[in-house]
Write a protein that binds this DNA or RNA. Structure first.
Lengths: 196, 196
DNA sequence: ATGAGTCATCCATTATATTGGATGATGCCG
DNA sequence: CGGCATCATCCAATATAATGGATGACTCAT
């Protein structure tokens, strides 16, 4: 196996990650070797990026370190979390001029989280529709009705949701919201975007 | 490297995945070998699960197949989506005998979604605490107060949340909930677990 | 100063990953 | 039918992953 132009990058990524994980757990090479059934010497070589571990060794390391195998290729985490709390008074709200619905972003805006939580107040009779578009990420949503009744149409599937009901979906088709009643409704949308 | 009890599983997972990906792209071993700079023979061995490829080989395969390295370990996709809607009446609720709080699982139970949505009704003065424990996944949460006031203590950080406020966190420390008021509170917990 | 313990790296050996050429099976065409 | 092309697997040689013991650096206690 001749050295490849990218060899140093994947082995170096693994090296940095294993060092990081071992340090976090306060383990010596010996202790980790016992925990995962890979020799001290091999772990040392891996941590210095001087070898390219096989899949079996990777899996053993992951198991011994208590992480998913895929995460051994992850870059180190960034620092300095932002404010984890968003106060209602500071939450950004936006009213759609066409339908009159009010959309409030509930989640703290600067905090690194895969979760986006949105509260929507939806007038009687209101209707709004979105094309989904092609995405590089998988967008998962759950729509939870807090008050009133709405209809959600995903592609050709229509769901009528009463207070407390919840619809889970992956956003891969056009989606439309409708309040078919004479009273306003309120609902929460939980949005999580994941790489495919 | 003696054969490990789990050796066949990771190598077999990779084998199935590479075969699947190559077939989808209609490539011969020769064509794939040229695309990714790994020998035909080696790809054949990998696809039959007869070897454990190193990280450098894995990365080359991923690049040549146009997928993320981590996805080479993926199991084949499951089928048959479940009911995407959960009705309030069918949602499982559970009352904690010690503190009296009521916990309702809002999310549709069988639908494959990374999101878990839970509604909690929390009596006046109630207090509940959890140790976080070591985890193989990163658990992200957002706690949104729907009614009343609660205090959430994450490790040594205490947050007082009023109606409409939202706290985002990663669950990596002990966490405690407290209702310091004379009125009941209600809050939603959005939980997303991601592989590390 | 000396001895013991801990830790990471070096060293020589073994195991196996990785390769390019050879081989056998299959299908197509004249 | 024979010849050719394509394809996956076999084979022997080379490269390197993976190991356990040895070694050197460092810290601490006497």
């Amino acid at each position: 196996m001749p050295p490849a132009p990218d060899a140093s990058s994947v082995n170096d990524r693994i090296a940095a990650r294993v060092r990081e994980l071992r340090a976090e757990r306060g383990l010596s090479l010996e202790a980790l070797a016992e925990a995962c059934g890979v020799s001290r010497s091999m772990i040392s070589l891996i941590e210095r990026g001087e070898t390219s571990p096989t899949a079996v060794v990777l899996e053993r390391l992951a198991t011994g370190l208590g992480v998913m195998l895929a995460s051994l290729f992850d870059a180190p985490a960034a620092a300095a979390p932002a404010d984890p709390v968003s106060r209602r008074a500071a939450q950004q709200a936006w009213r759609d001029p066409a339908s009159g619905y009010l959309r409030r972003n509930v989640s703290p805006p600067g905090f690194p989280s895969p979760i986006q939580l949105v509260e929507v107040s939806f007038p009687a009779g209101a209707r709004v529709a979105y094309e989904s578009g092609a995405r590089q990420t998988a967008t998962h949503q759950q729509i939870w009705v807090l008050q009133g009744t709405i209809e959600v149409t995903l592609g050709k599937e229509r769901h009528r949701l009463a207070t407390g009901d919840c619809l889970a979906l992956e956003l891969d088709r056009p989606i439309a919201y409708h309040n078919p009643t004479a009273k306003p409704a309120r609902y929460a949308v939980v949005i999580v975007s994941l790489p495919r």
